[in-house]
Nucleic acid binder design. Structure first.
Length: 291
DNA sequence: CTCGATCCCTGGACGC
DNA sequence: TGCGTCCAGGGATCGA
């Protein structure tokens, strides 16, 4: 599940590997996750990938030539997306849905079994409007702004961290890791956080994201960087995927519950639940009746 | 504004 | 070995 650190890792790798390369041709497979597939075919050939950036959980392949408008290929990896330059001779992996033949003879291939990702060619006003939908980058935001965005909200802190219009780039893993480190229960409300808690949240989020970037992200099952290597941060997870295992601080068993609609792992002792919080047993009991 | 429910999609884990 | 079932979850969307 590529979040900010994974996408940053991939963006840096792609910047090294494909920036400056020209796109010669486009071949598409399944296109139900692509905004306007025909735009890729009509707009990309002949263009140069000028620069590769991360924007939240998106990769932004900035394109040159063809008019003066700013334009870019937006790529969201969803849960299982991979984007990698490979030799043409390399057999195509299953679920390869986009292939860009590059001027250096390699192919930039997008592979995504579940197709939870998104790809879009955007230019000009449409591009800038799309980017404005998202909130601040957590690594480029000051405590003031961070605090303002969260403290004014009555939603649960877990929901706010995951909300891409509040902060761009944080996903389930790094939200849970940060809340554990800052000793804040995921069901607490944004407006309910004390200023010391807010500061801890801000500081720990940045520390965790930076450390994760240094270790090239977390590879739970799928993520690989531009050179096909997995990340290493999964070995440093403190709560994610540790349900039932002892808390690294107090040895209490890590719990998992659905909070703000997402699976959330936390320490029930270190991370004090908000007062009046409903017990999890009840809501959990009636989940069988779905479908 | 906030919530839960639903859908999208496939591979992997698990039970029998 | 081979089924069936459940689950993972980011994001869009809809109704309450």
């Amino acid at each position: 599940m590529p979040e900010l650190p994974e996408v940053e890792t991939l963006a840096r790798g792609l910047q090294r590997e494909v920036a400056g390369r020209k796109i010669l041709s486009v071949t598409l497979g399944k296109t139900d996750f692509i905004d306007n597939p025909e735009l890729l075919e009509s707009e990309l050939p002949g263009r140069t990938i000028v620069r590769v950036e991360r924007y939240g959980k998106f990769l932004l392949l900035r394109l040159g030539a063809e008019g003066t408008e700013e334009s870019a290929l937006l790529v969201h990896l969803g849960m299982t997306g991979l984007l990698m330059p490979l030799p043409v001779s390399q057999p195509q992996a299953n679920h390869t849905h986009v292939v860009l033949l590059l001027g250096d003879g390699r192919e930039l291939r997008y592979v995504d079994p579940r197709r939870f990702g998104r790809i879009a060619y955007l230019a000009g006003e449409v591009l800038s409007a799309e980017l404005k939908r998202f909130g601040e980058d957590p690594l480029e935001t000051g405590l003031e702004e961070f605090s303002r965005r969260i403290h004014g909200r009555k939603a649960r802190i877990k929901a706010l961290l995951l909300d891409q219009s509040v902060l761009r780039g944080v996903g389930n893993i790094y939200a849970d890791e940060t809340l554990w480190k800052a000793k804040i229960h995921p069901a607490r409300l944004g407006a309910g956080l004390k200023s010391l808690e807010m500061k801890a949240l801000y500081v720990e989020l940045q520390k965790i994201l930076r450390k994760a970037i240094l270790l090239r992200g977390s590879s739970i099952s799928d993520f690989l960087d531009a050179e096909g290597r997995p990340g290493e941060y999964q070995h440093h997870h403190r709560v994610y995927g540790r349900e039932g295992k002892p808390c690294f601080r107090c040895k209490t068993k890590i719990r998992r519950a659905i909070i703000a609609g997402r699976s959330s792992s936390f320490c029930p002792l270190c991370q004090k639940p908000p007062r009046g919080r409903k017990k999890t047993g009840r809501s959990g009991a009636k989940r069988g009746g779905k479908k």
